[in-house]
Protein backbone atom coordinates (compact mmCIF):
# COMPACT_ATOMS: atom_id res chain seq x y z
CA UNK A 1 0.00 0.00 0.00
CA UNK A 2 1.41 3.39 -1.00
CA UNK A 3 -0.07 6.51 0.57
CA UNK A 4 0.19 9.94 -1.01
CA UNK A 5 -0.87 13.33 0.27
CA UNK A 6 -2.20 15.74 -2.31
CA UNK A 7 -4.24 18.95 -2.44
CA UNK A 8 -5.68 20.13 -5.75
CA UNK A 9 -6.50 23.67 -6.75
CA UNK A 10 -8.27 22.16 -9.73
CA UNK A 11 -10.07 19.19 -8.18
CA UNK A 12 -11.44 17.82 -11.44
CA UNK A 13 -8.92 18.33 -14.26
CA UNK A 14 -5.91 18.44 -11.91
CA UNK A 15 -6.90 15.34 -10.02
CA UNK A 16 -7.77 13.47 -13.21
CA UNK A 17 -4.38 14.29 -14.74
CA UNK A 18 -2.48 13.30 -11.59
CA UNK A 19 -4.32 9.98 -11.20
CA UNK A 20 -3.66 9.09 -14.83
CA UNK A 21 0.02 9.95 -14.34
CA UNK A 22 0.10 7.60 -11.35
CA UNK A 23 -1.56 4.89 -13.47
CA UNK A 24 1.15 5.39 -16.10
CA UNK A 25 3.72 4.78 -13.35
CA UNK A 26 1.95 1.53 -12.44
CA UNK A 27 -0.19 2.65 -9.50
CA UNK A 28 -3.84 1.78 -9.05
CA UNK A 29 -6.02 3.78 -6.69
CA UNK A 30 -7.34 1.69 -3.81
CA UNK A 31 -8.78 4.37 -1.56
CA UNK A 32 -9.31 8.13 -1.50
CA UNK A 33 -9.82 10.36 1.51
CA UNK A 34 -10.00 14.13 1.83
CA UNK A 35 -6.29 14.61 1.10
CA UNK A 36 -4.78 11.14 1.32
CA UNK A 37 -4.76 8.75 -1.61
CA UNK A 38 -3.95 5.07 -1.29
CA UNK A 39 -2.44 3.16 -4.19
CA UNK A 40 -1.59 -0.42 -5.01
CA UNK A 41 0.99 -1.48 -7.56
CA UNK A 42 -0.28 -2.62 -10.94
CA UNK A 43 1.02 -2.83 -14.51
CA UNK A 44 1.88 0.59 -16.00
CA UNK A 45 -1.09 2.02 -17.92
CA UNK A 46 -3.42 -0.72 -16.69
CA UNK A 47 -6.11 1.71 -15.56
CA UNK A 48 -7.65 5.00 -16.65
CA UNK A 49 -9.25 7.66 -14.48
CA UNK A 50 -11.82 10.39 -14.93
CA UNK A 51 -13.34 12.67 -12.28
CA UNK A 52 -17.03 13.50 -12.29
CA UNK A 53 -18.81 16.25 -10.35
CA UNK A 54 -21.94 14.92 -8.60
CA UNK A 55 -22.52 17.65 -5.98
CA UNK A 56 -25.70 18.67 -7.80
CA UNK A 57 -27.26 15.24 -7.37
CA UNK A 58 -29.51 14.16 -4.51
CA UNK A 59 -28.60 11.09 -2.48
CA UNK A 60 -31.02 8.90 -4.48
CA UNK A 61 -29.69 10.22 -7.80
CA UNK A 62 -26.13 9.57 -6.65
CA UNK A 63 -26.94 5.99 -5.66
CA UNK A 64 -28.70 5.41 -8.99
CA UNK A 65 -25.70 6.79 -10.88
CA UNK A 66 -23.33 4.59 -8.90
CA UNK A 67 -25.51 1.56 -9.57
CA UNK A 68 -25.37 2.42 -13.29
CA UNK A 69 -21.57 2.63 -13.08
CA UNK A 70 -21.56 -0.85 -11.53
CA UNK A 71 -23.65 -2.05 -14.48
CA UNK A 72 -21.12 -0.78 -16.99
CA UNK A 73 -18.13 -2.18 -15.07
CA UNK A 74 -16.72 1.14 -13.93
CA UNK A 75 -15.24 1.32 -10.46
CA UNK A 76 -15.63 4.54 -8.45
CA UNK A 77 -14.38 6.35 -5.35
CA UNK A 78 -16.28 9.13 -3.61
CA UNK A 79 -14.48 12.36 -2.74
CA UNK A 80 -15.44 15.63 -1.05
CA UNK A 81 -15.33 19.00 -2.78
CA UNK A 82 -15.00 21.51 0.01
CA UNK A 83 -16.66 24.49 -1.51
CA UNK A 84 -19.61 26.66 -0.59
CA UNK A 85 -21.35 24.34 1.78
CA UNK A 86 -22.28 24.97 5.36
CA UNK A 87 -22.56 22.34 8.04
CA UNK A 88 -24.46 22.35 11.30
CA UNK A 89 -23.78 19.02 12.92
CA UNK A 90 -24.70 16.38 10.37
CA UNK A 91 -26.80 18.73 8.29
CA UNK A 92 -25.04 20.27 5.33
CA UNK A 93 -26.42 22.96 3.05
CA UNK A 94 -25.19 22.98 -0.52
CA UNK A 95 -26.25 26.33 -1.86
CA UNK A 96 -25.35 25.39 -5.42
CA UNK A 97 -27.04 22.01 -5.74
CA UNK A 98 -30.18 21.37 -7.73
CA UNK A 99 -33.50 20.56 -6.11
CA UNK A 100 -33.16 17.51 -3.89
CA UNK A 101 -29.45 17.92 -3.41
CA UNK A 102 -29.42 21.20 -1.51
CA UNK A 103 -29.73 19.86 1.99
CA UNK A 104 -27.64 16.85 2.83
CA UNK A 105 -28.97 15.30 5.99
CA UNK A 106 -28.15 11.63 5.67
CA UNK A 107 -24.63 10.39 6.20
CA UNK A 108 -24.72 9.15 2.61
CA UNK A 109 -24.78 12.69 1.30
CA UNK A 110 -22.05 14.24 3.40
CA UNK A 111 -18.74 14.87 1.68
CA UNK A 112 -19.54 13.19 -1.61
CA UNK A 113 -19.37 15.75 -4.36
CA UNK A 114 -16.82 14.12 -6.62
CA UNK A 115 -16.62 10.66 -8.07
CA UNK A 116 -13.32 9.28 -9.29
CA UNK A 117 -14.15 6.79 -12.05
CA UNK A 118 -11.74 3.98 -12.80
CA UNK A 119 -11.74 1.48 -15.61
CA UNK A 120 -9.31 -0.92 -17.25
CA UNK A 121 -7.36 0.93 -19.92
CA UNK A 122 -8.72 -0.05 -23.33
CA UNK A 123 -6.54 2.41 -25.24
CA UNK A 124 -9.44 4.76 -25.95
CA UNK A 125 -9.99 8.17 -24.34
CA UNK A 126 -11.99 8.03 -21.11
CA UNK A 127 -14.50 10.86 -21.38
CA UNK A 128 -17.41 11.01 -18.97
CA UNK A 129 -19.45 13.16 -21.35
CA UNK A 130 -19.26 12.27 -25.01
CA UNK A 131 -21.38 14.98 -26.59
CA UNK A 132 -21.05 18.74 -26.53
CA UNK A 133 -24.45 19.38 -24.94
CA UNK A 134 -23.63 17.17 -21.95
CA UNK A 135 -20.17 18.72 -21.62
CA UNK A 136 -21.74 22.19 -21.44
CA UNK A 137 -24.29 21.02 -18.89
CA UNK A 138 -21.52 19.52 -16.76
CA UNK A 139 -19.41 22.72 -16.89
CA UNK A 140 -22.46 24.81 -15.91
CA UNK A 141 -23.12 22.56 -12.91
CA UNK A 142 -19.46 22.88 -11.92
CA UNK A 143 -19.60 26.67 -12.21
CA UNK A 144 -22.53 26.98 -9.78
CA UNK A 145 -20.62 26.36 -6.51
CA UNK A 146 -18.02 28.98 -7.49
CA UNK A 147 -20.74 31.55 -8.21
CA UNK A 148 -22.35 30.88 -4.83
CA UNK A 149 -18.96 30.98 -3.12
CA UNK A 150 -18.19 34.35 -4.72
CA UNK A 151 -21.56 35.78 -3.63
CA UNK A 152 -21.02 34.43 -0.13
CA UNK A 153 -17.54 35.98 0.07
CA UNK A 154 -18.89 39.36 -1.09
CA UNK A 155 -21.67 39.22 1.51
CA UNK A 156 -19.17 38.31 4.22
CA UNK A 157 -16.93 41.19 3.20
CA UNK A 158 -19.89 43.59 3.34
CA UNK A 159 -20.83 42.25 6.75
CA UNK A 160 -17.22 42.63 7.86
CA UNK A 161 -17.12 46.22 6.59
CA UNK A 162 -20.47 47.51 7.77
CA UNK A 163 -21.28 45.52 10.89
CA UNK A 164 -17.71 45.64 12.03
CA UNK A 165 -17.72 42.51 14.11
CA UNK A 166 -15.78 39.74 12.35
CA UNK A 167 -17.93 37.00 10.90
CA UNK A 168 -15.48 34.20 11.58
CA UNK A 169 -14.08 33.23 14.93
CA UNK A 170 -10.82 31.40 14.42
CA UNK A 171 -9.87 31.04 18.08
CA UNK A 172 -9.68 27.32 17.34
CA UNK A 173 -6.67 27.94 15.09
CA UNK A 174 -5.13 30.98 16.71
CA UNK A 175 -4.47 32.37 20.16
CA UNK A 176 -6.30 35.52 19.16
CA UNK A 177 -10.02 35.55 19.78
CA UNK A 178 -10.94 36.48 16.27
CA UNK A 179 -9.52 37.67 12.99
CA UNK A 180 -8.90 41.35 12.70
CA UNK A 181 -10.81 43.17 9.99
CA UNK A 182 -7.95 43.54 7.51
CA UNK A 183 -6.75 39.95 7.75
CA UNK A 184 -10.28 38.73 7.18
CA UNK A 185 -10.67 41.04 4.16
CA UNK A 186 -7.45 39.67 2.63
CA UNK A 187 -8.60 36.11 3.28
CA UNK A 188 -12.02 36.76 1.72
CA UNK A 189 -10.40 38.56 -1.20
CA UNK A 190 -8.10 35.62 -2.00
CA UNK A 191 -10.99 33.14 -1.98
CA UNK A 192 -13.09 35.52 -4.11
CA UNK A 193 -10.26 35.89 -6.66
CA UNK A 194 -9.78 32.11 -6.88
CA UNK A 195 -13.54 31.73 -7.43
CA UNK A 196 -13.57 34.45 -10.07
CA UNK A 197 -10.69 32.82 -11.94
CA UNK A 198 -12.52 29.48 -11.89
CA UNK A 199 -15.78 31.13 -13.05
CA UNK A 200 -13.99 32.87 -15.94
CA UNK A 201 -12.18 29.68 -17.00
CA UNK A 202 -15.35 27.58 -16.87
CA UNK A 203 -17.32 30.31 -18.68
CA UNK A 204 -14.73 30.45 -21.46
CA UNK A 205 -14.89 26.69 -21.88
CA UNK A 206 -18.69 26.89 -22.04
CA UNK A 207 -18.48 29.69 -24.62
CA UNK A 208 -16.10 27.69 -26.82
CA UNK A 209 -18.35 24.63 -26.65
CA UNK A 210 -21.45 26.74 -27.36
CA UNK A 211 -19.83 28.02 -30.56
CA UNK A 212 -19.06 24.45 -31.57
CA UNK A 213 -22.61 23.39 -30.81
CA UNK A 214 -24.21 26.15 -32.86
CA UNK A 215 -22.28 24.95 -35.92
CA UNK A 216 -23.03 21.30 -35.28
CA UNK A 217 -26.71 21.99 -34.72
Amino acid sequence: MIKKFRVFLSPIEGQEKWLNEKATEGLKLSGAGRFIYEFKKCKPNQYQYAVDYIGNKSNIQRKEYESFLDDIDINYYEMPLNICQFSIGRVKFRSYANRGGKIATSSGMINRELLILERENNGKPFNIYSNVKDKIMSLKERRKPHIYLLIFMVLMELYNDFIGKPFIDISYFSNRNSLDKNTLSIFLGIIAIISMVRIVRLSLSIKTLNKKTSIQQ
Binding site: D52, F68, I72, F126, I128, Y129, S130, N131, D134, M137
Partner: peptide, 22 residues
Protein backbone atom coordinates in the same frame (compact mmCIF):
# COMPACT_ATOMS: atom_id res chain seq x y z
CA UNK B 1 -25.69 -0.42 -25.35
CA UNK B 2 -22.12 0.92 -25.18
CA UNK B 3 -20.75 -2.14 -26.98
CA UNK B 4 -23.54 -2.16 -29.59
CA UNK B 5 -23.04 1.50 -30.47
CA UNK B 6 -19.27 1.32 -30.60
CA UNK B 7 -19.38 -1.77 -32.81
CA UNK B 8 -22.12 -0.56 -35.17
CA UNK B 9 -20.52 2.86 -35.66
CA UNK B 10 -17.03 1.34 -36.05
CA UNK B 11 -15.83 3.25 -33.00
CA UNK B 12 -17.00 6.65 -34.29
CA UNK B 13 -19.40 6.98 -31.35
CA UNK B 14 -18.22 5.91 -27.91
CA UNK B 15 -20.59 6.88 -25.13
CA UNK B 16 -19.17 8.32 -21.95
CA UNK B 17 -20.82 7.00 -18.77
CA UNK B 18 -22.30 10.40 -17.85
CA UNK B 19 -23.82 10.90 -21.27
CA UNK B 20 -25.27 7.39 -21.44
CA UNK B 21 -26.71 7.60 -17.93
CA UNK B 22 -28.35 10.98 -18.60
Amino acid sequence: VMQFVEEKTNGRVIFGPGTLYG
